[in-house]
Amino acid sequence: MQSREQQLVELVDTAGSAAGTATVEEAHRAPGRLHRAFSVLLVDPDGRLLLQQRAAVKTRFALRWANSCCGHPGPGEPVVAAAARRLDEELGVSTPLQEVGVYLYQAIDPDSGRVEFEYDHVLAGEYDGPVRADPGEVARTDWVRPAELAERLVRFPEFYAPWLGGVLDAWRSAAR
């Protein structure tokens, strides 16, 4: 099986139009190459959000808390299909997903020097069932209320993935 770092991602321009391909490793090497990504937020019936603490082996922002699941579609792969696949791989979860927004961000991991420069499709789904996290991907999971998460992001940003605030904002904007 090909390592995740050698898989191809779709490079994009700032409008999200395809502009070529690169490996995951190449796209995340400084200064970073803008590429398509997705971030999933799962919401339970009480309105809580499922967060995951990224596994220690992650090459970018290891052990930081992030949204339920994230990843990269392959070149030309539908974003929702890729997100559903990764949701099953990382958390053992299957649920319908809907795109609720897109945002662009760039962040350098201070530990690894790798760069996230992503055109991030934010997807949301409702879920109220068991989570079977893959320990190679996820250290821990937790359900948290959106207002509590927003407060934590301000008070303790170093514990969270740098894209999580933008994911939360996109989800909140769509819910209005």
Rank of each mutant, 00 (worst) to 15 (best):
E116Y: 08
D88V: 09
W65Y: 09
W65N: 11
G101L: 06
W163F: 08
R64Q: 15
R48L: 11
R4T: 03
P75M: 14
F156G: 00
D169M: 12
L97A: 06
S94I: 04
E148W: 10
V131A: 06
W171M: 10
A175T: 13
A83Y: 11
A147H: 07
V102M: 03
C69K: 14
E118R: 02
H35T: 07
V167I: 04
R4F: 03
L123M: 03
F38N: 00
T14E: 14
A161Q: 08
G71S: 05
R132V: 12
V131N: 04
R172N: 08
D46K: 15
A170I: 10
E118N: 06
W65V: 15
E26Y: 01
R155Y: 01
G71H: 00
D44F: 07
Q6K: 10
D111W: 12
A22N: 02
A30F: 02
E148K: 05
P130G: 01
M1S: 14
P73C: 10
L97E: 03
G113K: 04
P45V: 09
P73M: 11
G16S: 04
A27N: 01
L34H: 00
L34M: 02
A37M: 08
P110K: 09
L42P: 03
L42K: 11
L41V: 09
V9Q: 03
P78L: 15
V131S: 05
L87D: 07
A30H: 07
R48V: 09
F117M: 09
L63A: 12
F117K: 05
L168Y: 07
G74Q: 15
E10T: 03
A84E: 15
S3Y: 04
G76R: 08
A107S: 13
V144L: 13
E90I: 06
H28D: 02
Q53N: 02
L8F: 09
V12A: 09
D128R: 04
V138K: 03
S3Q: 08
Q106K: 15
A18Q: 05
V122F: 00
A15Y: 10
L168V: 09
P75E: 13
S94A: 12
A161S: 12
T21E: 10
Q106D: 08
G129W: 02
W65S: 11
D88L: 15
F61A: 06
E148L: 05
T95W: 11
R48F: 04
T21R: 06
L11V: 03
F117L: 10
T59I: 14
P130V: 05
M1N: 06
G32S: 05
L91Y: 10
R54C: 06
K58N: 13
S94K: 14
R33F: 01
A170F: 06
V40F: 07
G101E: 03
D88R: 15
Y127A: 01
E118Y: 00
R86F: 13
L168Q: 04
Q2V: 13
F159M: 14
G71Q: 02
Q53V: 00
L51M: 13
P157G: 01
V131T: 09
E90Q: 14
L8K: 09
S3P: 13
E137L: 07
F117S: 08
A133V: 12
Y119W: 15
A147R: 05
A174E: 04
R172Q: 12
R172A: 15
E137P: 00
C70R: 15
